[in-house]
């Protein structure tokens, strides 16, 4: 139809960053900065309890109040940012590696291996990911390390499925067939041409994945199979503050808001990257 055809040139025009995009970028940068440098600035008092000052409401001294142990909620969030984001990065990196490896093997390997790996991926996609991760984490002994490993070994199916599709597509392109005729080895083809093409997709997916991983990680900690008290990880913080909602709402609201803001910021970053790569998605 005529309307979208006419709208095209505007969408394709080289644009600067919008105010909203700059806002999201700064938010992500700020979160990363907090995660990296925050713990260096934190006062030592947050690692010990001070019962006399417990459950104090927000004030000039304690911006977000204090928790049941009298620790400053704000500084615990800052320290927790490092734990939370580092864990999420680790999870996404690990399962991306598993996904890339499986996808490469499936795409380059013989037909039966591809078929078998894709059925395994189907099974992985059909199962409730969080519940299986919960099982693994509980079996290995509840800890942040267990939760990270459990999420890494359950998180790969979507990545594997997506990458394998893209790799197959790349391999059907004329230049790959041409190179094969010229005697370029399959391994060289995969590493030099097919893989780099797919990594691009992985990078786009990465930001959105961090957003969801932060959420699931916090959920596992809340259930009790992830980070354990006195860890400052945000999910564990909410879990231990749970009983104080009605007496000291700030102890629950603050860490939850931190999870929400981080998850939303990385999710939006993912959306922005995706739209910039493919402007036709704009407005959808």
């Amino acid at each position: 139809m005529t309307a979208p055809a006419i709208a095209q040139p505007a969408a394709r025009r080289k644009e600067g960053f919008s105010a909203f995009e700059i806002f999201v970028f700064s938010l992500v940068v700020a979160l990363l900065a907090i995660a990296i440098f925050g713990p260096l600035l934190a006062p030592d008092s947050i690692y010990s309890s001070d019962i006399a000052n417990s459950l104090m409401p927000p004030s000039a001294a304690n911006w977000f109040g204090t928790d049941d142990q009298g620790r400053d909620v704000f500084w615990r969030l800052i320290v927790g940012a490092q734990t939370t984001l580092l864990s999420a990065f680790l999870v996404v990196t690990l399962y991306s590696l598993i996904g890339v490896t499986l996808a490469t093997v499936a795409a380059a390997g013989p037909r039966w291996l591809d078929e078998a790996l894709m059925r395994v991926t189907d099974i992985g996609l059909a199962l409730p990911g969080m519940i299986v991760a919960l099982g693994f984490a509980a079996a290995m002994g509840a800890s942040l390390r267990s939760a990270v490993i459990a999420m890494a070994i359950t998180g790969w199916p979507i990545t594997a499925r997506m990458l394998r599709g893209i790799m197959r597509q790349t391999m059907e392109q004329p230049f790959v067939a041409g190179a094969q005729v010229l005697g370029v080895s399959k391994w060289r083809l995969m590493t030099k041409h097919v893989l780099p093409n797919s990594l691009d997709v992985l990078i786009v997916k990465w930001a959105g994945d961090i957003g969801t991983t932060v959420l699931v990680l916090a959920s596992l900690s809340f259930i009790g199979v992830g980070a354990q008290p006195p860890s400052a990880e945000w999910g564990a913080t909410i879990a231990s503050a749970r009983g104080y909602v009605s007496t000291a709402w700030w102890t629950v609201v603050a860490p939850g808001a931190a999870v929400a803001i981080t998850s939303i910021a990385f999710g939006l970053l993912g959306d922005i990257i995706q739209v910039r790569r493919d402007p036709s998605l704009r407005g959808n």
């Binding site: 959420l215 809340f222 749970r242 998850s263």
Partner: peptide
């Protein structure tokens, strides 16, 4: 599309999608 309802509901969807469920439950319960 592009109207006020569209904009507010999309923002709401993004916000809700990023909130931890158990936390939303705790806050709303309170």
């Amino acid at each position: 599309q592009g109207g006020v309802f569209d904009a507010t509901s999309r923002i709401t969807a993004v916000m809700l999608g990023g909130m931890p469920a158990f936390w939303l439950a705790l806050v709303l319960q309170y």
